[in-house]
């Protein structure tokens, strides 16, 4: 009896049950993850405007990098790329430290009820959809009826005859970043607060005996203690920097700001599914480009964190 047959003989009914369970997951992933991966080949075929794109996907001729060349030649692509990278980098720089600062600040609050109120209100926007939250931000910043202009007028930054319209291309980046900041900072602080709670109190006591002041303790105990968490989340943040942003950006887009608010995720949709041109191959190529950039960012993040802290995700 070969070893293979021997193993087969030893299979119990429970083994088959477990395999069936695991295969359910494989079946799902085959259809919804691995088949789409094969679909990437569409980026190297000519399926633009075809009615039966699937036919092209399976039987179409290879055309090399023509689709990629096409968008590299397109001026619009550079505009979208600038928006995508610019917005995401700004969001990273501004949004990443915010929850850490908030957690440090909340941690210093002595009154429990106040702490609770601060947390409850700051976390809440995280659970609102981008439709609702985007709608709220657009309402507050509306040029005619909103409250932002009157506030800016107080500081002399706006005037009734020349009001600031935050939904236009000139300011839309800041409106998007502001909204993102309000929506995610409270939520993001939870993880750091949890990490801070895990710090051994003896460390603080020892520091107090040594006469450390509040900021000294923050700098020399709290921050180093939560550094692993910070590193991990920085890499995670980098790795998904370019995806999951469709719903967020699309809400803010309008005709007057599109040159500054169009990002890769929305552009890909608009070129293919959301348009009558149905440029499926062109968009697949853009999608692949997007993934590659995302992957490079992940590698850069990992490398940076290894250089700075000696630790990375892989």
């Amino acid at each position: 009896m070969s070893a293979r047959e021997k193993i087969k003989k030893e299979w119990k009914s429970t083994d088959y049950e477990l395999i069936v369970m695991a295969l359910l997951g494989v079946l799902f992933l085959f259809v919804f993850a691995y088949l789409p991966m094969y679909g990437i080949t569409l980026a190297f075929k000519d399926g633009d405007g075809k009615i039966n794109v699937l036919r092209t996907l399976f039987y179409g001729e290879w055309i090399g990098f023509d689709n990629f060349k096409a968008f590299f030649m397109d001026e619009k692509f550079y505009q979208v790329l600038r928006n995508t990278l610019g917005l995401n980098l700004l969001m990273l720089v501004i949004e990443f430290p915010a929850p850490i600062l908030l957690a440090l600040s909340i941690n210093e609050v002595m009154h429990k009820p106040y702490k609770k109120v601060v947390q409850s209100i700051s976390i809440f926007p995280h659970f609102l959809s981008w439709t609702i939250f985007g709608g709220i931000i657009l309402a507050v910043s509306n040029v005619n009826t909103g409250v932002i202009n009157p506030v800016l007028e107080v500081f002399g930054l706006s005037s009734p005859d020349k009001p600031v319209n935050l939904a236009t291309g000139e300011y839309i980046w800041w409106l998007i970043i502001l909204s993102s900041l309000i929506k995610s900072t409270g939520w993001g602080s939870i993880i750091y607060l949890t990490a801070i709670t895990g710090i051994d109190p003896a460390l603080y006591e020892a520091a107090e005996i040594d006469g450390a002041a509040r900021f000294a303790k923050m700098r020399h105990i709290t921050l180093p203690s939560i550094m692993p968490t910070i590193t991990l989340f920085f890499i995670l943040r980098l790795s998904n920097m370019l995806d999951n942003s469709f719903e967020q950006f699309y809400v803010f887009q309008n005709g007057a700001n599109l040159t500054r608010s169009e990002v890769l995720s929305t552009y890909i949709w608009k070129m293919s599914i959301g348009s009558s041109d149905r440029r499926f191959s062109y968009s697949s190529a853009l999608g692949l480009f997007n993934s590659v950039i995302g992957f490079i960012l992940l590698l850069i993040g990992n490398l940076t964190s290894k250089k700075l802290t000696g630790k990375g995700v892989f």
């Binding site: 695991a22 997951g25 494989v26 992933l29 259809v31 919804f32 993850a33 691995y34 088949l35 789409p36 991966m37 094969y38 679909g39 990437i40 569409l42 794109v53 699937l54 996907l57 995720s265 890909i268 949709w269 293919s272 599914i273 499926f280 968009s283 697949s284 999608g287 692949l288 997007n290 993934s291």
Partner: peptide, 24 residues
């Protein structure tokens, strides 16, 4: 099984291929 699962956490097909699967 573990790697079949993990691989999909790092790589994906993107919107258009996924859309075509939904259609198909």
């Amino acid at each position: 099984f573990y790697w079949v699962n993990m691989f999909t956490m790092f790589f994906g097909g993107g919107l258009v291929p996924y859309y075509l699967i939904i259609r198909a």
